[in-house]
Nucleic acid binder design. Structure first.
Length: 956
RNA sequence: GCCCGGGUGGCGGAAUGGCAGACGCUGAGGACUUAAAAUCCUCCGGGGAUUUUUCCUCAUGUGGGUUCGACUCCCACCCCGGGCACCA
C-alpha cells in the first residue's frame, strides 16, 4: 500500500515504452526497414542522437519496420506544429502537445498505424541574437535549447516516434530547402527583383509583408517601426498559385475551421474587374480651357491632334465597378507612381507639386498613419480622357492610392465609393450620380442621350469650393438636377447618366461595359489578387544559404545539385549590425564559377525560416533520406496529414506557405495531392490573468515546474479538463489541485481492490489477463460471471458502459475532452458510492469496472493508466490493449424516468421500462397526483410524446 | 467600417430542440483526528410559500418571432474578444 507517486510511475513507464518501441510506426511499405537503417541526426553535441539508444532493447518486440513487415492497419498522421526551441516549454506548448497526444493514443488503441513525429524549427533570429549577446555559436545555443525542450517533452510522455526527429538547422535538412529552391529557380517560381522592402532596424533584416504587424511594426519587436528600403531580393512566386490557393480552400471546408479559411480567402483577396487605359491629354489641350470633347468612344483628343509629336501617355487604372465610370471625376495616382514626375514636368505648379510629392512620399512610409491618415492629395495640372465619353478628367495624386495594389492608379467615383467620396468632399470634386437604387429614377436620368452634356448633371460636393482641377468649375451654369448625395451609394443598382448603358442593372452594365472596353481596345478584363510574392531573402547568418553564385562572366549561376548542400561557414563573425554576416566572410563568398571556373561570388542571403516549416511534415515520412527530400511512395502512404494541431497565430502565414509548397511539389511530380492537411484544429491560448502568457508580462507558468509539483499526468488532465480545447484556457492553481485530487482518488480506488480482485479471480480463471485483452478486441459480451448478476453489479456495469459510450463519442467526434473527463469522474463517484464493493459485487465485475476506468483514462493520463493496469494483474502493457467495445446490452437502462409536463412545465415524473408506449405513459402520468391536479377541469388539446424522454400534455 | 468568434451561478464550464447549471473549483456544514493536513459524506443560481418532506415563481446579454416546448432555430439590437482594413 502506498501513495500515488507520479514522478516514479512516470519515469518507469516512459522507460518501458521506449524499450518496447511502443510509439514507432509500423512499416508503411513492404521490404526494407524504414528508418532504422539510416544515420541518426548528426551534429548533436551533447544529446545522444535519436534512433541510437533503442537499437537492441531487451525484450523489444519485433522491430516495427522489420523487412517484409508491411502493416495492414490503416494509417493516421497526427501532427502538432513544429516548435521553435526557445528554451523552456510553457503551458501553451504543453496544451498543444497534450491534445495531439490524446488523439494519437486514441487512434493507436483504435487500431491505426499512427505517425506522430516531433522536430525543431531550429533556424531563426533568436539563436543569432543570443549568440551575439553570449558570444557563443547559434548552433550551440539552439542545440542546448533543443536538448532541454526535448527532455521536457519526454517527461510528459508524449508518444512521439523519436526516430523521425528532425532539426531544420542541420545540413541534412536544409540541403533540401536548397534543392527545392533550385527546382523553383528552373521553373521561374524563384526569382530576384529589386524591391522596396520592410526593414526592421532591430532585426537588421528584411521582413515579409506578413511579418509587418499592427500597421507598420515588426512582428517580433512590436514597439519597433518598420522602415522602407530598396534592396535586391529573392522571391517565390506565390502569386502564380493565387487562383489555386483560393480555389482549393473549398477542399478544406469541413476539415478546417471556417475562420481560418475566411482569413486565407481574405488574405488572397481576389478582385474581378477591368483595367482601363485613360489617355493623358496634352498640356496644350489643358491650356485650351478643357472643353471636353463629346464624340463618344472616338478618343482622339483635339489637343493631341494639335501636337502630333507629343507622346501619348496612358494611365492604367483598375476597377471592379466599371459601371460607374461615367461618374469618374478624377484619376488618382499613388504618390510613388512612375508617371507622376513626367506629368507634373512643365506645368505651372510644378515646383509646388514636387514639394508636396516629397512630403507625401515621406509620410506614406510611416505606415502607422495610413489607416487613420486624412485624405491628402494635389492636382497635377493635367487631364486624362475618359475613354467612354471623351470627357476630360483631372489627374490627381492621392495618399490613399497604393502603388502595390492593382495598377497604382484609380478612377475616383465619389458618388459610389466611400473613399472617393471623402476625397471629393475634401477637395471639392464633383459628385455625379451614375447608379440609382430605383429603376424609375434611372429612366428619367437616361433620357438625355447626348453624353457630352453629362457634366451638367454634376453637382459640387456639399460645401466645397470648386477645385482647380474640377471640370465643373469651368461651367458656371452647372445646376443640380440630381440631388447632392449625402452618402455614397456603393451597392449595385441601375445605371443612370451613363450614355448607352443607362437603365442597365449594375451587373449587366459591368458585363457590357467591360466587353465594349475590350472590343474598343481601351480596356481588359482582369482579375487581381491582394496576395503578393513571398520575399524569402534574409540578410542573416542562421538560415539556409541561397544556392546561387554570381560570376562576372556567366552572370547568375545556380549551384549544381551535386554541390549541395551549400554549408554555412562554421565560425561566422556575428555582430548583429551592418551587412549580412555571410557577405563579410571571404571564405564563404569567394568561390569558383561552376560554369567557367573563374572567380565568382556566392549569394550571401539566407532563406526565411518559413521555408523550413513549409514542407517539414513531408520529411517526417522519410527523415534520413540522403538522395531526395523524401520518397514519394512514403509520402503517398502518409499524406495528407489527417490531423494538424496548432495555434491560430499561424492561420495565414505558415499554412498558406505550406499549401503553396505542396502545389509546387505536385507540379514537380513529388506528390499527387494538392492540399497537405486534411484537417486542422486550432487550440486556444493558455492565459493567466486574462492575458496570454508571455515573458514580457512575467506570467509564464513553465511546464517543467508543473511536472515537478504534480507530475505529467495531472498537468495533462488539467489542461484537458479546464476548458474545451478550442477555447482559451485561464490558468488556475485551484483547478489543477482538483485534477490532482481526482487522480489520487482513482489510484486509491484501484489500490483498494486490486489485490483481492486479482487473487480471487485467479482461482476462478487464471487465464483472465490474456483473455480480457482478447475480449476487448472482439467487441461486446463481457465475460459472464457465473451465476446471475446482482442488482448492484448491473448498476455498476451499466454506468460503466454508458460512460464508455459517451467517452468514446467525445474522443472520436467532438473532442470534448472536458466532458469526457467529467463522465469518468461521475463513474468514479458512482463506484465510491457503491462501497463497500465486496458487498454484492464479485471480483470479476469489480475488475471489469476498474479496467474500464483505466482504459478510458489511458489516452489522457497514460502513465497512471499503465500503472493501474499492472496493478490489476496484467503482465502485458496497456499499450497492447485495444480501446474497449461498448456493451450495449449492459448499458441499457432497466427503467427510465420520464418527466411529465403540462403546458410545457414539469409537473411530475413517471418511471417506466424503456420503450414504453405513449398510452401506458399517459395512463401512469394522469394517475400522478401532481399531474392530475393541473389537468383537473381542463380540456386536453394535444399530447406530445418522445419515447423514453418526455411527455407533454397541452391543455386549455 | 467589413469579416469571424463569444455572452449560462461566486469561478472554469455542461446541455445543439425535450427536466438549464452535469463535472470540477471556491465556500459552508458534518464525520474521522488530541489537533491540523489528507480523506470521506452533505449542502451550495435569485425570490417567495412551508415547521419539515415539499411546492410555486423568476432566471442562459436585451427585445421580438417560430414551436406543444428555445441556452439551442430565425430577426433586430447591446456588450466583449479576435482578424482584416484607404484593396480600387
Amino acid at each position: 500500500m502506498g501513495d500515488y507517486k507520479p514522478q516514479e510511475i512516470e519515469a518507469k513507464w516512459q522507460k518501458r515504452w521506449e524499450e518496447h518501441r511502443v510509439f514507432e510506426t509500423e512499416a508503411e511499405l513492404g521490404g526494407t526497414a524504414e528508418v532504422e537503417k539510416s544515420k541518426p541526426a548528426p551534429s548533436k553535441p551533447e544529446d545522444a542522437a535519436p534512433g541510437e539508444k533503442k537499437a537492441q532493447a531487451p525484450g523489444a518486440k519485433t522491430a516495427p519496420g522489420a523487412p517484409g513487415g508491411k502493416t495492414k492497419k490503416p494509417k493516421y498522421y497526427v501532427l502538432e506544429m513544429l516548435p521553435y526551441p526557445s528554451g523552456t516549454m510553457h503551458m501553451g506548448h504543453m496544451r498543444n502537445y497534450t491534445i495531439g497526444d490524446v488523439v494519437a493514443r486514441v487512434k493507436r488503441m483504435r487500431g491505426f498505424n499512427v505517425l506522430h513525429p516531433m522536430g525543431w524549427d531550429a533556424f531563426g533570429l533568436p539563436a543569432e541574437n543570443a549568440a551575439i549577446k553570449n558570444k557563443t555559436h547559434p548552433r550551440t545555443w539552439t542545440n542546448n535549447n533543443i536538448a532541454e525542450f526535448q527532455r521536457t517533452l519526454r517527461r510528459f510522455g508524449f508518444s512521439y516516434d523519436w526516430r523521425r526527429e528532425i532539426s531544420t538547422c542541420e545540413p541534412e535538412y536544409y540541403r533540401w530547402n536548397q534543392w527545392f529552391f533550385l527546382r523553383m529557380l528552373e521553373r521561374g517560381i524563384a526569382y530576384k527583383k529589386k524591391s522596396r522592402v520592410n526593414w526592421c532596424p532591430k532585426c537588421c533584416t528584411v521582413l515579409a509583408n506578413e511579418q509587418v504587424v499592427n500597421g507598420g511594426y515588426c512582428w517580433r519587436h512590436e514597439d519597433t517601426r518598420v522602415e522602407a528600403r530598396e534592396i535586391e531580393q529573392w522571391f517565390l512566386k506565390t502569386t502564380a498559385y493565387s487562383e489555386q490557393l483560393l480555389e482549393d480552400l473549398k477542399q478544406l471546408e469541413g476539415g478546417w475551421p471556417d475562420r481560418v479559411i475566411a482569413m486565407q480567402r481574405n488574405w488572397i483577396g481576389k478582385s474581378i474587374g477591368v483595367k482601363v487605359w485613360f489617355e493623358v491629354a496634352s498640356q496644350e489641350s489643358t491650356a485650351e480651357g478643357g472643353q471636353p470633347k463629346s464624340e463618344g468612344k472616338n478618343l482622339e483628343d483635339p489637343g493631341a491632334k494639335a501636337a502630333p509629336g507629343a507622346s501619348k501617355e496612358k494611365i492604367e487604372i483598375f476597377t471592379t465597378r466599371i459601371d460607374t465610370i461615367y461618374g469618374a471625376s478624377a484619376i488618382v495616382l499613388a504618390p510613388t507612381h512612375p508617371l507622376v514626375g513626367r506629368l507634373i514636368a512643365g506645368t505651372p505648379g510644378q515646383a509646388a507639386a514636387e514639394k508636396k510629392l516629397v512630403e507625401m512620399k515621406v509620410s506614406s512610409v510611416k505606415t502607422e498613419d495610413i489607416a487613420t491618415a486624412e485624405k491628402d492629395g494635389f492636382f497635377t495640372g493635367r487631364y486624362a480622357v475618359n475613354p467612354f465619353n471623351g470627357e476630360k478628367v483631372p489627374i490627381w495624386v492621392g495618399n490613399f492610392v497604393l502603388l502595390e495594389y492593382g495598377t497604382g492608379a484609380i478612377m475616383a467615383v465619389p458618388a459610389h465609393d466611400e473613399r472617393d467620396f471623402e476625397f471629393a468632399v475634401k477637395f471639392g470634386l464633383p459628385v455625379p450620380v451614375v447608379v440609382s437604387k430605383e429603376k424609375s429614377f434611372s429612366a428619367e436620368g437616361s433620357e438625355k442621350e447626348h453624353r457630352g452634356h453629362g457634366e451638367e448633371k454634376k453637382t459640387q460636393a456639399p460645401g466645397a469650393k470648386p477645385a482647380p482641377g474640377a471640370p465643373g468649375g469651368g461651367n458656371p451654369s452647372a445646376q443640380a438636377e440630381v440631388p447632392v448625395p449625402q452618402r455614397p451609394f456603393t451597392e449595385y443598382g441601375v445605371s443612370v447618366n451613363s450614355g448607352l448603358y443607362s437603365g442597365l442593372k449594375s451587373e449587366d452594365a459591368i458585363e457590357r461595359m467591360a466587353s465594349d472596353a475590350e472590343a474598343e481596345g481601351f480596356g481588359k478584363k482582369e482579375t487581381i489578387f491582394r496576395l503578393r510574392d513571398w520575399g524569402i531573402s534574409r540578410q542573416r547568418y542562421w538560415g539556409t544559404p541561397i544556392p546561387v553564385i554570381y560570376c562576372a562572366k556567366d552572370g547568375m549561376v545556380p549551384v549544381p545539385d551535386k554541390d549541395l548542400p551549400v554549408l554555412l561557414p562554421a565560425n561566422p563573425l556575428l555582430t548583429g549590425e551592418g551587412e549580412s554576416p555571410l557577405a563579410t566572410d571571404p571564405e564563404f563568398v569567394n568561390v569558383k564559377c561552376p560554369n567557367c571556373g573563374g572567380p565568382a561570388r556566392r549569394e550571401s542571403d539566407t532563406m526565411d525560416t518559413f521555408v523550413d516549416s513549409s514542407w517539414y511534415f513531408y520529411r517526417y515520412c522519410d527523415p534520413r533520406n540522403d538522395h531526395a527530400p523524401f520518397d514519394p511512395a512514403k509520402a503517398a502512404y502518409w499524406f495528407p496529414i489527417d490531423q494538424y494541431i496548432g495555434g491560430i497565430t499561424h492561420a495565414i502565414l505558415h499554412l498558406l506557405y505550406s499549401r503553396f509548397w505542396c502545389k509546387v511539389m505536385r507540379d514537380l511530380g513529388l506528390v499527387a495531392h494538392s492540399e497537405p492537411i486534411a484537417r486542422l484544429f486550432t487550440q486556444g491560448m493558455v492565459q493567466k490573468g486574462g492575458v496570454a502568457m508571455s515573458k514580457s508580462r512575467g506570467n509564464v507558468v513553465g511546464a517543467e515546474e508543473m511536472a515537478d509539483k504534480y507530475g505529467a499526468d495531472t498537468g495533462r488532465l488539467y489542461t484537458l479538463f479546464a476548458a474545451p480545447p478550442e477555447k482559451d484556457l485561464e490558468w488556475s492553481e485551484e483547478s489543477i489541485e482538483g485534477a490532482w485530487r481526482f487522480l489520487n482518488r482513482v489510484y486509491r480506488m484501484v489500490e483498494k481492490h486490486w489485490e483481492k480482485a486479482t487473487a480471487e479471480e485467479k482461482r476462478e480463471d487464471n487465464a483472465e489477463s490474456a483473455e480480457f485483452a482478447e475480449r476487448k478486441l472482439q467487441g461486446p459480451g463481457a465475460k459472464a460471471a457465473p451465476g446471475a448478476p446482482t442488482q448492484k453489479e448491473r448498476e455498476l456495469l451499466r454506468k460503466a458502459h454508458q460512460t464508455l459510450r459517451r467517452v468514446t463519442q467525445d474522443f472520436e467526434g467532438r473532442w470534448h475532452f472536458n466532458s469526457a473527463i467529467a463522465q469518468i469522474m461521475e463513474l468514479v463517484n458512482a463506484i465510491y458510492a457503491a462501497e463497500p464493493l465486496e458487498d454484492g459485487v464479485r471480483p470479476a465485475v469489480q475488475k471489469e469496472v476498474l479496467e474500464l476506468v483505466t482504459l478510458m483514462l489511458a489516452p489522457m493520463t497514460p502513465h497512471l493508466a499503465e500503472e493501474l493496469w499492472e496493478m490489476l494483474g496484467h503482465k502485458d502493457g496497456l499499450w497492447t490493449v485495444a480501446w474497449p467495445a461498448i456493451n450495449e446490452e449492459l448499458a441499457k437502462e432497466d427503467e427510465v424516468e420520464i418527466p411529465v409536463q403540462v403546458n410545457g412545465k414539469v409537473r411530475g415524473r413517471v418511471t417506466m421500462p424503456p420503450g414504453a408506449a405513449q398510452d401506458e405513459v399517459v395512463k401512469r402520468a394522469t394517475a400522478d397526483a401532481g399531474v392530475a391536479g393541473h389537468l383537473a377541469g381542463k380540456t386536453v388539446r394535444k399530447v406530445i410524446f418522445v419515447q423514453d424522454k418526455l411527455l407533454n400534455i397541452v391543455v386549455s
